[in-house]
Simulated scan of single mutants.
Amino acid sequence: MSRTLFITGASSGIGAATARAAAEAGWRVALAARSADRLDALVREIGGDALALPCDATDADALKAAMARAAETFGGLDAAFANAGMGASAAGAENGDLANWRAMIDVNVWGLVATVHAALPHLRKTKGHMLLTGSRAGRATLKGSVYGATKHFVHGFGENLAEEMREWGGRCTVIAPGMVDTPFFDEAKPQALKAEDVARAVVYALEQPAHVTVGEVYLMPNPEG
């Protein structure tokens, strides 16, 4: 029987690559992002097992409505991937842009917990799987980095969420890549991971048998590869 994965930040980068990889592995995919045009193009590429759900990951009501529509369309949700995120300049704590930080915290922290909050009632019904996009920055100390601090939050929250979900048979996985060559950066990063590398990690965690929990997948580019 087909299973359904809901993805935020699905219009490009890691989200879009995960949608493709999950669909290839037999999952139906519900795709959420602000860019309706990109989502529609991705749905046309993937075919009938994909659903475009344009919404802002920081809008809790819109997320709930999108997940309800996905569950109604596909008969439930088996997994959700809180992947939407943004970065900030590396100006440090003294010289950083407060408006940029506020927007980033809204997406990386509030958007993530809002996605989890909307997903859990559906995942409880299916003993489902919640995935969160963390980062190497969430495991390291980066001088003055507010972005890194948002990813430390993701890692800590992911561990706490795993304990909560375990009580009813659910699973939680943090996907923690190093630098990934995606539109997240203004310039290409040819030595970095590819979005498809991270997508394979997501599918790996999803495809484990029910008695196996993958708490974290930590992947880094290999300069000798």
Rank of each mutant, 00 (worst) to 15 (best):
L120N: 01
A88K: 02
W110D: 13
A30R: 00
L77G: 00
A205I: 09
T141F: 14
H155F: 12
A137E: 08
R44Q: 15
T8I: 08
K189Q: 15
E224C: 00
F185H: 15
E159D: 14
E207L: 09
V180E: 05
T115H: 05
Y204K: 00
V214Y: 02
T133N: 12
A30K: 03
W168R: 04
A19K: 01
L63N: 02
T115E: 08
E164W: 10
A162G: 13
K143R: 11
K127G: 14
G13Y: 15
G26L: 09
K125P: 00
V214Q: 02
G128W: 03
A176R: 06
A99T: 14
D197F: 11
A79R: 02
R200G: 04
A50W: 06
Y218F: 14
I175K: 07
A79V: 04
M1V: 14
Q208P: 02
P183W: 13
I46G: 03
V212C: 10
E24S: 13
F153G: 02
A90L: 14
A205R: 10
A205L: 09
G134I: 07
A62R: 07
V116P: 03
V43L: 03
D37H: 14
A114K: 06
P209R: 13
L63V: 09
G169C: 03
A10I: 04
F185S: 14
A52C: 02
T173Q: 08
R44L: 12
V107R: 02
R44M: 08
F157W: 11
K194I: 05
L98V: 15
M1K: 13
